[in-house]
Write a protein that binds this DNA or RNA. Structure first.
Length: 581
DNA sequence: GCCGTTTTCGGCCCGACTGTTTTCAGTCG
Protein backbone atom coordinates (compact mmCIF):
# COMPACT_ATOMS: atom_id res chain seq x y z
CA UNK A 1 0.00 0.00 0.00
CA UNK A 2 1.19 3.49 -0.70
CA UNK A 3 2.05 5.65 2.26
CA UNK A 4 -0.77 8.13 2.71
CA UNK A 5 -1.39 8.18 6.38
CA UNK A 6 -2.03 11.03 8.75
CA UNK A 7 1.38 10.21 10.18
CA UNK A 8 4.08 7.66 9.58
CA UNK A 9 3.53 6.52 13.13
CA UNK A 10 -0.05 5.53 12.29
CA UNK A 11 1.38 3.33 9.56
CA UNK A 12 3.85 1.70 11.93
CA UNK A 13 1.17 1.02 14.54
CA UNK A 14 -1.11 -0.45 11.86
CA UNK A 15 1.71 -2.66 10.58
CA UNK A 16 2.36 -3.84 14.13
CA UNK A 17 -1.29 -4.80 14.65
CA UNK A 18 -1.43 -6.56 11.28
CA UNK A 19 1.62 -8.55 12.24
CA UNK A 20 0.08 -9.51 15.57
CA UNK A 21 -2.91 -10.74 13.55
CA UNK A 22 -0.72 -12.86 11.31
CA UNK A 23 1.21 -14.25 14.27
CA UNK A 24 -1.99 -15.16 16.10
CA UNK A 25 -3.15 -17.10 13.10
CA UNK A 26 0.21 -18.83 12.67
CA UNK A 27 0.13 -19.80 16.30
CA UNK A 28 -3.31 -21.29 15.76
CA UNK A 29 -5.23 -19.05 18.13
CA UNK A 30 -8.88 -18.13 17.63
CA UNK A 31 -9.05 -16.60 14.16
CA UNK A 32 -11.51 -13.93 15.28
CA UNK A 33 -8.81 -12.59 17.53
CA UNK A 34 -6.58 -12.19 14.48
CA UNK A 35 -9.46 -10.65 12.54
CA UNK A 36 -9.93 -8.06 15.28
CA UNK A 37 -6.27 -7.01 15.27
CA UNK A 38 -6.39 -6.62 11.49
CA UNK A 39 -9.66 -4.68 11.66
CA UNK A 40 -8.08 -2.36 14.22
CA UNK A 41 -5.07 -1.96 11.93
CA UNK A 42 -7.31 -0.79 9.13
CA UNK A 43 -9.09 1.67 11.39
CA UNK A 44 -5.76 3.18 12.38
CA UNK A 45 -4.57 3.30 8.79
CA UNK A 46 -7.74 5.26 7.95
CA UNK A 47 -7.40 7.71 10.83
CA UNK A 48 -7.12 11.30 9.76
CA UNK A 49 -5.12 12.46 12.75
CA UNK A 50 -1.97 11.10 14.37
CA UNK A 51 -2.60 8.13 16.66
CA UNK A 52 -0.23 9.69 19.17
CA UNK A 53 -2.51 12.72 19.51
CA UNK A 54 -5.47 10.44 20.19
CA UNK A 55 -3.46 8.40 22.65
CA UNK A 56 -2.22 11.45 24.54
CA UNK A 57 -5.78 12.74 24.80
CA UNK A 58 -6.77 9.39 26.32
CA UNK A 59 -9.17 8.65 23.47
CA UNK A 60 -7.78 5.39 22.08
CA UNK A 61 -10.98 3.57 23.04
CA UNK A 62 -13.01 5.78 20.70
CA UNK A 63 -11.38 4.02 17.75
CA UNK A 64 -13.55 1.12 16.57
CA UNK A 65 -12.02 -2.32 17.28
CA UNK A 66 -9.67 -0.86 19.85
CA UNK A 67 -10.55 -2.27 23.27
CA UNK A 68 -8.52 -3.31 26.28
CA UNK A 69 -5.98 -5.60 24.62
CA UNK A 70 -5.50 -3.74 21.35
CA UNK A 71 -5.38 -0.44 23.22
CA UNK A 72 -2.72 -1.81 25.54
CA UNK A 73 -0.58 -2.96 22.63
CA UNK A 74 -0.85 0.47 20.99
CA UNK A 75 -0.04 2.30 24.23
CA UNK A 76 2.98 0.11 24.91
CA UNK A 77 4.26 0.62 21.39
CA UNK A 78 3.84 4.40 21.54
CA UNK A 79 5.61 4.53 24.91
CA UNK A 80 8.53 2.23 24.29
CA UNK A 81 8.50 1.10 20.66
CA UNK A 82 7.42 -2.44 21.58
CA UNK A 83 4.21 -4.24 22.52
CA UNK A 84 4.34 -7.13 24.96
CA UNK A 85 1.75 -9.18 23.06
CA UNK A 86 3.81 -8.80 19.89
CA UNK A 87 7.06 -9.81 21.60
CA UNK A 88 5.44 -12.87 23.20
CA UNK A 89 4.01 -13.99 19.89
CA UNK A 90 7.30 -13.50 18.08
CA UNK A 91 8.94 -15.68 20.71
CA UNK A 92 6.27 -18.34 20.32
CA UNK A 93 6.15 -18.42 16.52
CA UNK A 94 9.26 -19.55 14.65
CA UNK A 95 11.03 -16.69 12.98
CA UNK A 96 10.45 -16.52 9.27
CA UNK A 97 6.99 -18.11 9.20
CA UNK A 98 5.53 -14.66 8.52
CA UNK A 99 7.58 -14.50 5.35
CA UNK A 100 6.04 -17.71 4.02
CA UNK A 101 2.56 -16.17 4.17
CA UNK A 102 3.55 -13.79 1.37
CA UNK A 103 3.48 -16.73 -1.06
CA UNK A 104 0.01 -16.96 -2.62
CA UNK A 105 -1.57 -20.28 -1.75
CA UNK A 106 0.39 -20.64 1.47
CA UNK A 107 -1.77 -19.75 4.43
CA UNK A 108 -1.24 -20.22 8.14
CA UNK A 109 -1.98 -23.95 8.15
CA UNK A 110 0.35 -24.74 5.27
CA UNK A 111 3.09 -22.49 6.66
CA UNK A 112 2.88 -24.23 10.02
CA UNK A 113 3.04 -27.65 8.43
CA UNK A 114 5.98 -26.70 6.21
CA UNK A 115 7.92 -25.38 9.13
CA UNK A 116 7.03 -28.21 11.46
CA UNK A 117 8.23 -30.90 9.08
CA UNK A 118 11.04 -29.21 7.18
CA UNK A 119 12.16 -26.34 9.45
CA UNK A 120 11.79 -23.96 6.52
CA UNK A 121 11.69 -20.24 7.36
CA UNK A 122 12.60 -18.38 4.16
CA UNK A 123 11.15 -18.15 0.67
CA UNK A 124 14.49 -19.29 -0.77
CA UNK A 125 14.38 -22.46 1.35
CA UNK A 126 10.77 -23.01 0.35
CA UNK A 127 11.75 -22.74 -3.29
CA UNK A 128 14.60 -25.21 -2.83
CA UNK A 129 12.35 -27.69 -1.05
CA UNK A 130 9.72 -27.43 -3.78
CA UNK A 131 12.30 -27.89 -6.54
CA UNK A 132 13.82 -30.94 -4.89
CA UNK A 133 10.43 -32.57 -4.37
CA UNK A 134 10.67 -32.57 -0.59
CA UNK A 135 7.47 -30.58 -0.13
CA UNK A 136 5.31 -33.35 -1.52
CA UNK A 137 6.35 -35.59 1.31
CA UNK A 138 4.20 -33.45 3.59
CA UNK A 139 0.58 -34.33 4.37
CA UNK A 140 -1.90 -32.71 1.98
CA UNK A 141 0.80 -31.61 -0.41
CA UNK A 142 1.36 -33.33 -3.74
CA UNK A 143 3.17 -32.44 -6.96
CA UNK A 144 0.47 -29.98 -8.02
CA UNK A 145 0.75 -27.91 -4.86
CA UNK A 146 4.51 -27.91 -5.16
CA UNK A 147 4.23 -26.60 -8.70
CA UNK A 148 1.78 -23.86 -7.66
CA UNK A 149 4.05 -22.74 -4.85
CA UNK A 150 6.96 -22.44 -7.29
CA UNK A 151 4.81 -20.37 -9.66
CA UNK A 152 3.66 -18.14 -6.82
CA UNK A 153 7.23 -17.54 -5.72
CA UNK A 154 8.13 -16.60 -9.29
CA UNK A 155 5.30 -14.09 -9.58
CA UNK A 156 6.03 -12.73 -6.13
CA UNK A 157 9.52 -11.88 -7.35
CA UNK A 158 8.19 -10.41 -10.58
CA UNK A 159 5.59 -8.17 -8.98
CA UNK A 160 6.89 -4.87 -7.71
CA UNK A 161 3.70 -3.67 -6.14
CA UNK A 162 0.26 -2.41 -6.96
CA UNK A 163 -0.68 -1.08 -10.39
CA UNK A 164 -1.42 2.56 -11.02
CA UNK A 165 -5.04 3.26 -11.85
CA UNK A 166 -4.49 4.14 -15.52
CA UNK A 167 -2.64 0.90 -16.26
CA UNK A 168 -5.21 -1.23 -14.44
CA UNK A 169 -8.14 0.49 -16.13
CA UNK A 170 -6.54 0.12 -19.54
CA UNK A 171 -5.94 -3.60 -18.96
CA UNK A 172 -9.50 -3.98 -17.68
CA UNK A 173 -10.98 -2.14 -20.68
CA UNK A 174 -8.98 -4.28 -23.08
CA UNK A 175 -10.25 -7.51 -21.53
CA UNK A 176 -13.81 -6.16 -21.47
CA UNK A 177 -13.61 -5.37 -25.19
CA UNK A 178 -12.20 -8.85 -25.89
CA UNK A 179 -15.00 -10.56 -23.95
CA UNK A 180 -17.73 -8.54 -25.63
CA UNK A 181 -16.34 -9.54 -29.00
CA UNK A 182 -15.69 -13.18 -28.19
CA UNK A 183 -18.82 -14.25 -26.35
CA UNK A 184 -22.49 -13.56 -25.78
CA UNK A 185 -22.71 -11.46 -22.64
CA UNK A 186 -25.86 -9.81 -21.34
CA UNK A 187 -24.18 -7.56 -18.82
CA UNK A 188 -20.51 -6.90 -18.30
CA UNK A 189 -18.91 -4.62 -15.75
CA UNK A 190 -15.61 -3.89 -14.11
CA UNK A 191 -15.97 -4.12 -10.33
CA UNK A 192 -13.65 -4.25 -7.34
CA UNK A 193 -11.18 -1.48 -6.60
CA UNK A 194 -11.18 -0.39 -10.25
CA UNK A 195 -14.89 0.44 -10.08
CA UNK A 196 -14.31 2.17 -6.75
CA UNK A 197 -11.53 4.22 -8.42
CA UNK A 198 -8.99 3.31 -5.76
CA UNK A 199 -5.73 5.13 -6.36
CA UNK A 200 -3.78 1.90 -6.84
CA UNK A 201 -5.10 -1.48 -7.89
CA UNK A 202 -4.19 -4.96 -6.66
CA UNK A 203 -6.32 -7.14 -8.94
CA UNK A 204 -8.84 -6.34 -11.65
CA UNK A 205 -12.30 -7.86 -11.10
CA UNK A 206 -14.72 -8.40 -13.97
CA UNK A 207 -18.34 -9.51 -13.72
CA UNK A 208 -20.53 -10.95 -16.47
CA UNK A 209 -24.23 -11.82 -16.47
CA UNK A 210 -24.91 -14.73 -18.80
CA UNK A 211 -26.83 -17.99 -18.91
CA UNK A 212 -23.95 -19.87 -20.45
CA UNK A 213 -20.68 -19.42 -18.66
CA UNK A 214 -18.48 -21.94 -20.47
CA UNK A 215 -17.78 -19.96 -23.69
CA UNK A 216 -17.06 -16.84 -21.66
CA UNK A 217 -14.61 -18.67 -19.43
CA UNK A 218 -12.94 -20.09 -22.52
CA UNK A 219 -12.67 -16.66 -24.12
CA UNK A 220 -11.29 -15.22 -20.89
CA UNK A 221 -8.58 -17.77 -20.22
CA UNK A 222 -7.79 -17.93 -23.93
CA UNK A 223 -7.21 -14.18 -24.35
CA UNK A 224 -3.98 -13.39 -26.18
CA UNK A 225 -2.36 -11.49 -23.33
CA UNK A 226 -2.90 -14.18 -20.67
CA UNK A 227 0.43 -15.36 -19.20
CA UNK A 228 -0.85 -17.90 -16.74
CA UNK A 229 -4.18 -19.36 -15.63
CA UNK A 230 -4.51 -19.42 -11.86
CA UNK A 231 -7.96 -20.97 -11.62
CA UNK A 232 -10.68 -21.97 -14.02
CA UNK A 233 -14.10 -23.01 -12.77
CA UNK A 234 -17.71 -22.99 -13.92
CA UNK A 235 -18.39 -19.47 -12.67
CA UNK A 236 -15.04 -18.11 -11.57
CA UNK A 237 -11.63 -17.89 -13.20
CA UNK A 238 -8.40 -16.00 -12.58
CA UNK A 239 -5.54 -15.18 -14.94
CA UNK A 240 -2.28 -13.25 -14.90
CA UNK A 241 -1.61 -10.82 -17.77
CA UNK A 242 1.29 -8.49 -18.59
CA UNK A 243 3.33 -7.03 -15.75
CA UNK A 244 1.96 -9.66 -13.39
CA UNK A 245 -1.49 -8.06 -13.16
CA UNK A 246 -4.18 -10.51 -12.00
CA UNK A 247 -7.66 -10.39 -13.53
CA UNK A 248 -10.55 -12.30 -11.94
CA UNK A 249 -13.78 -13.05 -13.77
CA UNK A 250 -17.11 -14.15 -12.33
CA UNK A 251 -20.16 -15.18 -14.32
CA UNK A 252 -23.59 -14.93 -12.69
CA UNK A 253 -27.18 -15.34 -13.85
CA UNK A 254 -28.86 -12.10 -14.94
CA UNK A 255 -31.35 -12.38 -12.07
CA UNK A 256 -28.46 -11.97 -9.61
CA UNK A 257 -26.78 -9.12 -11.45
CA UNK A 258 -27.29 -6.39 -8.85
CA UNK A 259 -26.35 -8.55 -5.89
CA UNK A 260 -23.23 -9.81 -7.63
CA UNK A 261 -22.21 -6.32 -8.76
CA UNK A 262 -22.61 -5.07 -5.22
CA UNK A 263 -20.68 -7.96 -3.76
CA UNK A 264 -17.76 -7.89 -6.20
CA UNK A 265 -17.44 -4.12 -6.09
CA UNK A 266 -16.73 -4.17 -2.37
CA UNK A 267 -15.00 -2.91 -0.46
CA UNK A 268 -14.79 -5.90 1.80
CA UNK A 269 -15.44 -3.60 4.74
CA UNK A 270 -18.48 -2.06 3.06
CA UNK A 271 -19.86 -5.54 2.37
CA UNK A 272 -19.29 -6.73 5.91
CA UNK A 273 -21.06 -3.68 7.31
CA UNK A 274 -23.92 -4.02 4.81
CA UNK A 275 -24.41 -7.71 5.56
CA UNK A 276 -24.28 -7.07 9.27
CA UNK A 277 -26.95 -4.40 8.88
CA UNK A 278 -29.05 -6.77 6.75
CA UNK A 279 -28.81 -9.51 9.38
CA UNK A 280 -30.21 -7.19 12.02
CA UNK A 281 -33.20 -6.81 9.71
CA UNK A 282 -33.40 -10.63 9.48
CA UNK A 283 -32.13 -10.48 5.92
CA UNK A 284 -29.22 -12.37 4.41
CA UNK A 285 -27.17 -10.75 1.67
CA UNK A 286 -24.91 -12.79 -0.58
CA UNK A 287 -23.78 -12.43 -4.19
CA UNK A 288 -27.07 -13.93 -5.41
CA UNK A 289 -29.50 -11.66 -3.67
CA UNK A 290 -31.02 -10.29 -0.53
CA UNK A 291 -33.09 -13.01 1.17
CA UNK A 292 -35.19 -13.38 4.27
CA UNK A 293 -33.08 -15.45 6.64
CA UNK A 294 -33.83 -19.12 6.03
CA UNK A 295 -35.06 -18.57 2.48
CA UNK A 296 -31.67 -18.19 0.84
CA UNK A 297 -31.76 -21.79 -0.42
CA UNK A 298 -34.26 -21.88 -3.28
CA UNK A 299 -36.36 -19.00 -2.00
CA UNK A 300 -37.22 -15.89 -3.98
CA UNK A 301 -34.96 -12.98 -3.05
CA UNK A 302 -36.37 -9.76 -1.67
CA UNK A 303 -34.10 -7.95 -4.14
CA UNK A 304 -31.29 -8.97 -6.49
CA UNK A 305 -31.62 -7.56 -9.98
CA UNK A 306 -30.04 -4.15 -9.52
CA UNK A 307 -27.89 -2.50 -6.87
CA UNK A 308 -30.56 0.16 -6.46
CA UNK A 309 -33.16 -2.52 -5.60
CA UNK A 310 -30.97 -3.97 -2.88
CA UNK A 311 -29.99 -0.69 -1.25
CA UNK A 312 -33.63 0.36 -1.40
CA UNK A 313 -34.81 -2.87 0.22
CA UNK A 314 -32.40 -2.09 3.04
CA UNK A 315 -33.87 1.40 3.38
CA UNK A 316 -30.87 3.12 1.84
CA UNK A 317 -30.11 5.32 -1.13
CA UNK A 318 -27.82 3.87 -3.80
CA UNK A 319 -24.21 4.46 -2.75
CA UNK A 320 -21.66 5.51 -5.38
CA UNK A 321 -18.84 2.94 -5.57
CA UNK A 322 -16.25 5.61 -4.70
CA UNK A 323 -17.79 5.91 -1.22
CA UNK A 324 -18.01 2.19 -0.42
CA UNK A 325 -15.27 2.01 2.20
CA UNK A 326 -17.27 1.83 5.44
CA UNK A 327 -16.33 5.42 6.13
CA UNK A 328 -19.80 6.54 7.15
CA UNK A 329 -21.52 6.09 3.79
CA UNK A 330 -24.03 3.53 5.08
CA UNK A 331 -25.33 5.81 7.82
CA UNK A 332 -25.50 8.65 5.29
CA UNK A 333 -27.42 6.45 2.84
CA UNK A 334 -29.88 5.44 5.58
CA UNK A 335 -30.41 9.11 6.44
CA UNK A 336 -30.77 9.96 2.72
CA UNK A 337 -27.88 12.36 3.26
CA UNK A 338 -25.28 11.20 0.75
CA UNK A 339 -23.42 14.09 -0.89
CA UNK A 340 -24.00 14.91 -4.59
CA UNK A 341 -20.41 14.20 -5.64
CA UNK A 342 -18.54 16.35 -8.14
CA UNK A 343 -18.40 14.83 -11.65
CA UNK A 344 -15.86 15.28 -14.41
CA UNK A 345 -18.57 17.02 -16.46
CA UNK A 346 -18.78 19.73 -13.79
CA UNK A 347 -15.28 20.94 -14.65
CA UNK A 348 -15.24 24.15 -16.68
CA UNK A 349 -11.49 24.33 -17.20
CA UNK A 350 -8.04 23.01 -16.35
CA UNK A 351 -5.71 25.19 -14.31
CA UNK A 352 -2.48 23.20 -14.41
CA UNK A 353 -1.14 22.38 -17.89
CA UNK A 354 2.40 22.27 -19.33
CA UNK A 355 3.71 22.65 -22.88
CA UNK A 356 7.00 22.16 -24.69
CA UNK A 357 7.96 25.67 -23.60
CA UNK A 358 9.27 23.75 -20.57
CA UNK A 359 9.08 19.99 -19.98
CA UNK A 360 5.82 19.23 -21.84
CA UNK A 361 5.81 17.01 -24.92
CA UNK A 362 3.24 18.91 -27.02
CA UNK A 363 3.14 22.52 -28.20
CA UNK A 364 1.25 25.17 -26.32
CA UNK A 365 -1.15 25.58 -29.24
CA UNK A 366 -1.86 21.84 -29.33
CA UNK A 367 -2.55 21.70 -25.60
CA UNK A 368 -4.83 24.73 -25.79
CA UNK A 369 -6.80 23.43 -28.76
CA UNK A 370 -7.32 20.05 -27.15
CA UNK A 371 -8.54 21.75 -23.96
CA UNK A 372 -11.02 23.77 -26.00
CA UNK A 373 -12.15 20.66 -27.90
CA UNK A 374 -12.85 18.96 -24.58
CA UNK A 375 -15.53 21.59 -24.06
CA UNK A 376 -13.72 23.65 -21.45
CA UNK A 377 -14.27 27.40 -21.18
CA UNK A 378 -10.69 28.10 -20.15
CA UNK A 379 -7.25 26.60 -19.61
CA UNK A 380 -4.27 27.91 -17.65
CA UNK A 381 -0.87 27.30 -19.18
CA UNK A 382 1.36 26.84 -16.16
CA UNK A 383 4.83 26.11 -17.42
CA UNK A 384 7.62 25.78 -14.87
CA UNK A 385 9.54 28.63 -13.28
CA UNK A 386 13.12 29.54 -14.03
CA UNK A 387 14.78 27.76 -11.12
CA UNK A 388 13.67 24.30 -12.22
CA UNK A 389 16.59 23.94 -14.62
CA UNK A 390 15.86 20.34 -15.52
CA UNK A 391 12.50 21.40 -16.95
CA UNK A 392 13.87 24.34 -18.96
CA UNK A 393 11.98 26.77 -16.70
CA UNK A 394 11.00 30.12 -18.20
CA UNK A 395 13.19 33.21 -17.82
CA UNK A 396 11.83 36.73 -18.30
CA UNK A 397 12.49 36.81 -22.00
CA UNK A 398 10.75 33.50 -22.65
CA UNK A 399 7.84 34.45 -20.41
CA UNK A 400 7.25 37.48 -22.65
CA UNK A 401 7.47 35.45 -25.87
CA UNK A 402 5.09 32.83 -24.54
CA UNK A 403 2.62 35.52 -23.45
CA UNK A 404 2.54 36.86 -27.01
CA UNK A 405 1.74 33.41 -28.34
CA UNK A 406 -1.04 33.08 -25.76
CA UNK A 407 -2.46 36.49 -26.69
CA UNK A 408 -2.69 35.40 -30.32
CA UNK A 409 -4.49 32.18 -29.38
CA UNK A 410 -6.92 34.14 -27.24
CA UNK A 411 -7.80 36.35 -30.21
CA UNK A 412 -8.28 33.36 -32.43
CA UNK A 413 -10.25 31.15 -30.01
CA UNK A 414 -12.43 33.67 -28.14
CA UNK A 415 -14.58 33.34 -26.11
CA UNK A 416 -12.38 30.44 -24.99
CA UNK A 417 -9.77 31.84 -22.61
CA UNK A 418 -6.13 30.87 -22.21
CA UNK A 419 -4.61 32.14 -18.97
CA UNK A 420 -0.99 33.19 -18.70
CA UNK A 421 0.10 31.07 -15.76
CA UNK A 422 3.09 29.61 -14.00
CA UNK A 423 3.82 26.68 -11.75
CA UNK A 424 6.24 28.49 -9.53
CA UNK A 425 8.74 26.54 -7.47
CA UNK A 426 8.70 27.02 -3.71
CA UNK A 427 12.44 27.07 -3.07
CA UNK A 428 14.13 25.29 -0.19
CA UNK A 429 14.32 28.53 1.80
CA UNK A 430 10.59 29.15 1.29
CA UNK A 431 10.93 32.00 -1.20
CA UNK A 432 9.12 31.73 -4.52
CA UNK A 433 11.15 31.30 -7.69
CA UNK A 434 10.08 34.66 -9.19
CA UNK A 435 10.08 38.08 -7.52
CA UNK A 436 6.66 39.62 -6.83
CA UNK A 437 6.82 42.01 -9.80
CA UNK A 438 7.24 39.05 -12.16
CA UNK A 439 4.55 37.01 -10.41
CA UNK A 440 2.18 39.97 -10.77
CA UNK A 441 2.47 39.58 -14.54
CA UNK A 442 0.79 36.16 -14.45
CA UNK A 443 -2.97 35.79 -14.39
CA UNK A 444 -2.73 32.63 -12.34
CA UNK A 445 0.02 31.26 -10.11
CA UNK A 446 0.14 27.74 -8.78
CA UNK A 447 2.96 27.05 -6.33
CA UNK A 448 4.54 23.72 -5.53
CA UNK A 449 7.55 21.90 -4.13
CA UNK A 450 9.94 19.87 -6.29
CA UNK A 451 13.07 20.10 -4.17
CA UNK A 452 14.43 19.61 -0.65
CA UNK A 453 11.85 16.93 0.20
CA UNK A 454 13.80 15.78 3.22
CA UNK A 455 13.46 18.91 5.28
CA UNK A 456 11.91 18.50 8.73
CA UNK A 457 8.15 18.76 9.09
CA UNK A 458 8.15 22.33 10.44
CA UNK A 459 10.26 23.61 7.57
CA UNK A 460 8.22 21.94 4.79
CA UNK A 461 5.00 23.09 6.41
CA UNK A 462 6.34 26.63 6.67
CA UNK A 463 7.31 26.65 2.99
CA UNK A 464 3.79 25.66 1.98
CA UNK A 465 1.99 27.92 4.43
CA UNK A 466 4.18 30.84 3.36
CA UNK A 467 3.24 30.27 -0.28
CA UNK A 468 -0.44 29.92 0.67
CA UNK A 469 -0.35 33.30 2.42
CA UNK A 470 1.36 34.98 -0.54
CA UNK A 471 -1.24 37.30 -2.08
CA UNK A 472 -0.31 36.40 -5.66
CA UNK A 473 -0.54 32.61 -5.24
CA UNK A 474 -3.83 31.21 -6.51
CA UNK A 475 -3.33 27.53 -5.70
CA UNK A 476 -0.95 24.93 -4.30
CA UNK A 477 -0.21 22.01 -6.61
CA UNK A 478 0.29 18.40 -5.49
CA UNK A 479 0.39 19.46 -1.84
CA UNK A 480 1.93 16.28 -0.36
CA UNK A 481 4.53 15.57 -3.06
CA UNK A 482 3.88 11.84 -3.08
CA UNK A 483 4.51 9.60 -6.08
CA UNK A 484 2.43 6.47 -5.76
CA UNK A 485 4.48 3.28 -5.46
CA UNK A 486 7.66 5.38 -5.83
CA UNK A 487 8.06 8.13 -3.29
CA UNK A 488 6.50 8.82 0.09
CA UNK A 489 4.97 12.24 0.68
CA UNK A 490 7.22 14.75 2.37
CA UNK A 491 6.61 15.21 6.07
CA UNK A 492 4.04 17.98 6.27
CA UNK A 493 1.39 19.15 8.72
CA UNK A 494 -1.58 19.00 6.37
CA UNK A 495 -3.90 20.45 9.01
CA UNK A 496 -1.83 23.62 9.05
CA UNK A 497 -1.78 23.69 5.24
CA UNK A 498 -5.55 23.25 4.96
CA UNK A 499 -6.25 25.80 7.71
CA UNK A 500 -4.07 28.39 5.97
CA UNK A 501 -5.76 27.64 2.64
CA UNK A 502 -9.19 28.13 4.20
CA UNK A 503 -8.13 31.37 5.88
CA UNK A 504 -6.69 32.91 2.69
CA UNK A 505 -8.94 31.43 -0.01
CA UNK A 506 -5.96 29.75 -1.66
CA UNK A 507 -7.01 26.71 -3.67
CA UNK A 508 -5.65 23.25 -2.97
CA UNK A 509 -5.13 21.08 -6.01
CA UNK A 510 -6.34 17.56 -6.52
CA UNK A 511 -3.77 16.54 -9.12
CA UNK A 512 -5.15 13.97 -11.56
CA UNK A 513 -1.81 12.50 -12.63
CA UNK A 514 -2.17 8.73 -11.98
CA UNK A 515 1.16 8.76 -10.20
CA UNK A 516 0.18 11.63 -7.91
CA UNK A 517 -3.56 11.83 -7.10
CA UNK A 518 -2.55 14.52 -4.69
CA UNK A 519 -4.30 15.57 -2.46
CA UNK A 520 -5.00 11.97 -1.48
CA UNK A 521 -8.69 11.07 -0.95
CA UNK A 522 -8.55 11.16 2.85
CA UNK A 523 -6.96 14.60 2.75
CA UNK A 524 -9.63 15.78 0.31
CA UNK A 525 -12.24 14.75 2.85
CA UNK A 526 -10.46 16.66 5.56
CA UNK A 527 -10.14 19.74 3.33
CA UNK A 528 -13.82 19.54 2.39
CA UNK A 529 -14.87 19.27 6.03
CA UNK A 530 -12.75 22.28 6.93
CA UNK A 531 -14.25 24.35 4.12
CA UNK A 532 -11.28 24.59 1.74
CA UNK A 533 -11.77 25.22 -1.97
CA UNK A 534 -10.19 22.61 -4.26
CA UNK A 535 -9.22 22.64 -7.91
CA UNK A 536 -9.11 19.45 -9.98
CA UNK A 537 -6.30 19.61 -12.55
CA UNK A 538 -4.58 17.28 -14.98
CA UNK A 539 -0.95 18.49 -14.71
CA UNK A 540 -0.84 17.34 -18.35
CA UNK A 541 2.46 17.29 -20.24
CA UNK A 542 0.88 15.92 -23.45
CA UNK A 543 -2.52 16.34 -25.10
CA UNK A 544 -3.85 12.93 -24.11
CA UNK A 545 -2.98 13.62 -20.48
CA UNK A 546 -5.63 16.34 -20.33
CA UNK A 547 -7.98 13.39 -19.71
CA UNK A 548 -6.32 12.78 -16.36
CA UNK A 549 -8.85 15.06 -14.68
CA UNK A 550 -11.05 11.95 -14.64
CA UNK A 551 -8.69 10.43 -12.06
CA UNK A 552 -8.48 13.65 -10.06
CA UNK A 553 -12.27 13.87 -10.05
CA UNK A 554 -12.50 10.27 -8.84
CA UNK A 555 -10.10 11.07 -6.01
CA UNK A 556 -12.16 14.13 -5.09
CA UNK A 557 -15.30 11.97 -5.14
CA UNK A 558 -13.62 9.42 -2.86
CA UNK A 559 -13.02 12.38 -0.54
CA UNK A 560 -16.77 13.21 -0.57
CA UNK A 561 -16.23 16.44 -2.54
CA UNK A 562 -19.25 18.18 -4.05
CA UNK A 563 -19.09 20.55 -7.02
CA UNK A 564 -19.47 23.64 -4.86
CA UNK A 565 -16.21 22.78 -3.08
CA UNK A 566 -14.28 22.77 -6.38
CA UNK A 567 -13.21 26.12 -7.83
CA UNK A 568 -12.93 25.13 -11.48
CA UNK A 569 -16.54 23.98 -11.66
CA UNK A 570 -17.34 27.66 -11.97
CA UNK A 571 -16.58 30.40 -14.44
CA UNK A 572 -13.31 32.24 -14.69
CA UNK A 573 -14.53 35.14 -12.53
CA UNK A 574 -14.86 32.79 -9.57
CA UNK A 575 -11.49 31.21 -10.24
CA UNK A 576 -9.66 34.52 -10.38
CA UNK A 577 -11.56 36.20 -7.55
CA UNK A 578 -9.24 38.15 -5.27
CA UNK A 579 -7.92 36.25 -2.34
CA UNK A 580 -8.86 37.10 1.19
CA UNK A 581 -5.98 39.06 2.67
C1' DG B 1 -10.52 -9.60 20.94
C1' DC B 2 -14.53 -6.74 20.22
C1' DC B 3 -19.31 -5.67 20.47
C1' DG B 4 -24.56 -4.70 21.43
C1' DT B 5 -32.34 -2.09 18.30
C1' DT B 6 -31.18 -10.77 18.83
C1' DT B 7 -26.63 -6.49 24.62
C1' DT B 8 -22.53 -8.57 28.82
C1' DC B 9 -22.48 -13.93 26.13
C1' DG B 10 -22.16 -15.80 21.89
C1' DG B 11 -21.54 -14.47 17.71
C1' DC B 12 -18.30 -12.53 14.31
C1' DC B 13 -20.17 -12.02 5.91
C1' DC B 14 -20.30 -15.66 2.80
C1' DG B 15 -19.25 -18.62 -0.97
C1' DA B 16 -16.09 -20.55 -5.01
C1' DC B 17 -12.15 -23.12 -6.31
C1' DT B 18 -8.23 -26.28 -5.57
C1' DG B 19 -6.05 -30.21 -4.20
C1' DT B 20 -6.36 -33.57 -1.63
C1' DT B 21 -9.47 -35.90 -0.22
C1' DT B 22 -14.00 -40.34 0.11
C1' DT B 23 -16.51 -35.45 2.69
C1' DC B 24 -13.39 -31.54 3.41
C1' DA B 25 -9.75 -28.13 4.89
C1' DG B 26 -7.32 -24.38 3.25
C1' DT B 27 -7.07 -20.25 0.77
C1' DC B 28 -8.80 -16.37 -1.39
C1' DG B 29 -11.55 -12.38 -2.28
Amino acid sequence: MPREYASEENARVADLLDEIGDLLELKGENVFRAVTYRAAAREIRDLREPIRTIYEAGHLATIPKVGTSVGEAIAQYLQGGKARRHEELKAAVPEGLLTLLRVKGVGPATARSIHQHLRITTIDELEQAAKSGRLRELPKIQAKTEENILKSIASLRQRTGRSLIDYARTAADRMVAHLREAADVRELSVCGSVRRWKETIGDVDLLVASDTAAPIMAAFTGAANVDRILAQGDTKSSVIVERGLQIDLRVVPAASWGAALLYFTGSKEHNVRLRGYALRKKLLLNEYGLYRVGEEKGGVPVASRTEEDIYQALGMDWIPPELREDHGEIDAALAHALPALVTVDDLKGDLHVHSDWTDGRDTLAAMVRRARDKGYAYVAMTDHSVGLGMTNGLNLERIAKRSKEIAKLNQELAPFRVLVGTEVEIRADGRLDYPDDVLAGFEIVTASIHSAFNQPREQITQRLVGAIRHPLVTAISHPTGRLLERRDPYDVDLDAVIDAAVATGTRLEVNGGPERLDLPDWAVRKAVEKGATLVIDSDAHAVEELEWTVYGTATARRGWATADRVGNTRGLDAVLARKVR
